[in-house]
């Protein structure tokens, strides 16, 4: 099932630029950019460090339609400085989220592709991420769902990993990665035996889309193509009711996280977690296509 036809041109989400993702994700000709390149200047914080910078500072914001619904969008460009958040980049996101609180679109789609704080503007980036965190929660409290779409080459790491998990729901591709510290950082600090960042398969078993889906940290899996991200996002939004922030909901999440902490204590590889979840042949998970994995998850205990 889902066997890819040879010679069919697929548009990989992982490889596409942020602009190409938006064009392919949204309804045709519906995208309208806020603060477009022709009205913007590259960040002076980068110029002072002798770095050219980009007109959009690595993030594109605007409005468009998804399957007919009015949405606001944020798309980080992973190819520019790892999609990392600096002052202008962060303020564009905060501004977009504030606009969502005012205009009440059907949703905000947050196409995350970022290593987190831009070290060249470390303080500005950290503070901006804190402001984004609060703005995401304010947007949700205003009744506007925020969907995170993770499948770019930089994944969602550092503060952007936290932001992603503050969203109403996370959609990932198998190629997407979601975590806090990057494997390279852990390897540098704790040693290669703790985390071998060159072991691609291991990195995906710890941070990748399939693992996050099986453990419930991402709501839905998409194929590595814009049309499928579009379909899955539209499907999630149909009939979505954004919950009011409540003690009951956070109690339930606390129970889920605490139970799992105990249940999977000491495990260090996705294979072990999947086995503990009841997957009969965990070694097959990396080879499975999306639909088979979705079926597998449905069949797991609980």
């Amino acid at each position: 099932m889902n066997a890819r036809q040879p010679f069919t041109l697929r548009r990989s989400w992982f490889e596409a630029t942020a602009r190409a993702r938006l064009q392919a994700l949204l309804d045709p000709a519906s995208f309208r950019e806020f603060l477009p390149p022709e009205t913007s200047e590259p960040s002076p914080h980068l110029a002072v460090l002798d770095i050219p910078g980009a007109f959009d500072d690595g993030v594109i914001i605007g409005a468009g339609r998804l399957d007919g619904r009015e949405v606001l969008v944020i798309a980080q460009e992973g190819q520019f400085m790892g999609g990392a958040v600096g002052e202008i980049h962060g303020a564009k996101i905060v501004g977009l989220l504030k606009r969502a609180q005012r205009d009440k679109p059907a949703a905000v789609l947050f196409l995350a592709d970022s290593g987190g704080v831009r070290l060249h503007e470390a303080n500005a980036g950290l503070i901006a991420i804190s402001e984004i965190m609060r703005a995401v929660l304010d947007t949700r409290a205003a009744g506007v769902p925020v969907l995170a779409l993770v499948g770019g080459s930089c994944g969602a790491f550092g503060g952007m990993g936290i932001v992603t998990r503050l969203c109403s729901a996370v959609i990932m591709s198998e190629e997407g990665r979601l975590a806090l510290s990057g494997p390279e950082v852990i390897e540098t600090v704790a040693g290669v035996e703790e985390f071998d960042s060159k072991d691609r398969a291991l990195v995906w078993r710890v941070t990748g889309g399939k693992h996050r889906y099986l453990t419930g940290d991402c709501a839905a899996l998409a194929e590595d193509e814009a049309a499928d991200f579009s379909r899955v996002a539209a499907q999630l939004l149909a009939g979505w009711q954004e919950d009011v922030p409540s003690l009951a909901a956070l109690r339930a999440e606390q129970a889920r996280l605490s139970t799992r902490r105990t249940r999977f204590a000491g495990l260090r590889d996705g294979l072990d977690v999947w086995a503990a979840l009841g997957v009969a042949e965990p070694g097959q998970v990396p080879l499975m296509d999306r639909d088979s994995l979705v079926d597998l998850k449905k069949g797991l205990p609980q």
């Binding site: 630029t17 477009p36 390149p37 022709e38 980009a54 007109f55 460009e77 190819q79 520019f80």
Partner: peptide, 19 residues
């Protein structure tokens, strides 16, 4: 078009804006 933008400021790459 009023303006056109092409490319990304990534390693070994560039962005070009024409207006």
């Amino acid at each position: 078009a009023g303006t056109a933008l092409c490319g990304v400021v990534g390693s070994g790459n560039l962005e070009i804006l024409i207006r």
